[in-house]
Computed example of a mutant assay.
Amino acid sequence: MDDFFTRLCRDTFGEKFNEAFISQQIGRTNMDYGALDINASNIVYVHGTYDPWHVIGLTETTNPESPVILING
């Protein structure tokens, strides 16, 4: 599946940036930083519903030492 953004990366950065390479790098980033299962404590994640980026942030957690707060507005 070769979509617009994959083509854009390949056109901008070179043929190496195909879908397989990009997916591999996403997996590596998620492994390095914990993806949605971040092993951290004493962090409060705060998002507001007006912030367009809130949809890609954490909206719930199973770690009581790292609560998530979603502010309506």
Rank of each mutant, 00 (worst) to 15 (best):
D11V: 05
H47Q: 13
A20W: 05
N72T: 10
A35W: 08
D11Q: 12
R28F: 03
I43Q: 12
A35P: 02
Y50N: 10
I22H: 04
V68A: 05
N72I: 07
H47D: 11
F4L: 12
I69P: 01
I26K: 09
K16I: 11
V68H: 08
E19L: 14
C9S: 08
P67K: 04
I26V: 14
T29D: 00
V55C: 14
A35Y: 12
L36V: 07
E65R: 04
M31Y: 07
L58Y: 14
E19D: 09
P67I: 03
S66L: 02
Y50G: 06
S23R: 12
G57V: 03
P64D: 05
N30G: 00
P52M: 07
Q24Y: 04
A40M: 13
F17M: 05
A40V: 14
Y45I: 13
I22W: 04
D2S: 08
L70Q: 05
G57Q: 04
L70I: 13
P67C: 03
Y50M: 07
Y33I: 09
M31L: 12
L58K: 15
G27V: 02
V46A: 13
G34Y: 02
N63H: 00
A20L: 10
D51W: 09
P64I: 00
G48C: 15
H47F: 12
L8V: 07
G27E: 10
I43Y: 13
P52A: 06
A20D: 12
A35M: 06
